[in-house]
Design a protein around this nucleic acid. Structure first.
Length: 406
DNA sequence: GCGATCAGCT
DNA sequence: CACAGCTGATCGC
């Protein structure tokens, strides 16, 4: 979850906001949306009037047809084409996260930036890094000063295979099942499409999804051949697509095959969190229901993050995910992350912010910082009671920044 | 009472 | 724990 913290949304030195629709300001008339997931559209409604919204063409279709936003507020931008907005050169680069997702590369004019402030800024939104991104002409042409990074898996324990291998694993598991088995693949409103389409393609099977999901998928400009795999007639498909939440509960799966021609149901939960270091399968069996966790991820693994940072060599990084967590995660970002990413401490800095109203997490983070920087826990706890922390957001953020980056 | 926001859960 | 997104509680009007 991208934390709802204003510092992570403003692009420094500009009047631009990225995925920050809940932070309206007269200073900002230009909003940028990286992709159409609800935690990035927080504060955005169809009658949003904070300013114009720049996004990819696919995201623009979703804003119009799925959210019902009037087209005149939306400015769809093509990928890979530098354009000037308010004197800043903006380039959209595919973020390899979900359909329509993009990163924004901002290049500020020299005159606007003071020598110490960043001139080249990359906000990745949510991203799955791939070595090919390091060869992208727009990225090769610049030296990134400031990188807003999707640090969802910013710890060395998060290793998982590429998507192709994760899909191959789904296919292998489907092939070895007995006849009469229905397969169910979990999905989000947008996302995980390659997991079920890839498996269906490999096996030559049809995919059922409900009418809503099909309607959404029509907006994603998927290849004709992929769309042809879809059917809304349940009995003609051996693979069903369902929402990752309730749809993958054993009771819901049981329900799905009760009274049907299927005797068993095997479901797949495609998420990076399901990776097992032991190499063993993440599997849950209950009667005629089997649920596999598949390490199919739409965020970068730790090694991919490291490759990203080593390729781009940014002067500074602002983590946008996982900044609200417990002491162990804070340590991962502040210490281990910096070490393993091979950043030189004098030239690079990691800014750590926290969610103003995440009271428990906030207190734990303060306690951790106090402990690790030689302050007493008591002192940190005494600084402000939780209710006042929200009001003191700026000064506390400053405190954290000084302490963590010292 | 309503919409917005948030913690908690999966 | 996190993902994305739902639910129910709480806040402000």
């Amino acid at each position: 979850m991208a934390a709802q913290v204003e510092h992570l949304k403003w692009i420094q030195g500009t009047n631009f906001m990225v995925d920050g629709f809940n932070f309206q300001s007269p200073r900002c008339r230009s909003y940028f949306l990286t992709h159409f997931h609800s935690d990035h559209t927080t504060g955005l409604r169809k009658n949003f009037c904070g300013g114009v919204i720049y996004c990819s063409e696919i995201t623009a279709v979703l804003l119009r047809k799925d959210m019902g936003m009037p087209p005149e507020r939306i400015i769809p931008l093509p990928m890979d084409e530098p354009l000037e907005i308010d004197g800043v050169t903006v380039t959209l680069i595919d973020a390899n996260h979900c359909p329509g997702s993009c990163m924004f590369l901002f290049q500020l004019p020299y005159k606007a930036a003071s020598p110490s402030s960043p001139r080249v800024i990359l906000h990745v939104g949510d991203m799955r890094w791939h070595p090919r991104l390091g060869r992208h002409p727009a990225l090769r042409a610049v030296k990134v000063d400031l990188l807003y990074l999707d640090t969802t898996y910013a710890s060395p324990k998060h290793v998982f295979p590429c998507q192709e291998d994760a899909i191959a694993e789904i296919v292998r598991l489907m092939r070895k099942e007995r006849p009469g088995t229905l397969f169910v693949v979990g999905s989000y409103h947008i996302g995980k499409e390659r997991a079920f389409l890839g498996a269906a393609k490999a096996l030559g099977w049809k995919v059922w999804c409900n009418a809503n999901k099909k309607k959404t998928m029509k907006m994603l400009r998927l290849p004709e051949a992929d769309m042809a795999l879809l059917t809304t007639v349940q009995t003609s498909a051996q693979i069903h697509v369902t929402f990752m939440g309730q749809g993958l509960q054993p009771e819901a799966l049981e329900q799905r095959i009760s009274g049907s021609k299927w005797s068993h149901v095997v479901a797949f939960r495609p998420t990076g969190w399901s990776f097992r270091k032991s190499g063993g399968l993440d599997v849950r069996k209950e009667g005629n229901v089997t649920i596999y966790g598949i390490p199919y991820s739409e965020h970068s693994s730790f090694l991919e993050l490291r490759d990203c940072v080593r390729t781009l060599r940014p002067s500074r990084i602002i983590p946008t995910v996982n900044v609200t967590n417990d002491p162990a995660t804070a340590r991962a970002i502040v210490d281990r992350f910096a070490d393993l990413m091979d950043l030189s401490r004098d030239k690079s800095r990691l800014d750590v912010y926290f969610k103003p109203k995440a009271r428990k997490a906030q207190q734990r983070l303060l306690a951790y910082i106090a402990a690790s920087r030689g302050l007493s826990c008591k002192r940190a706890a005494d600084m402000s009671p939780p209710a006042q922390l929200a009001k003191k957001q700026l000064s506390i953020a400053g405190f954290l920044k000084r302490k963590v980056c010292a």
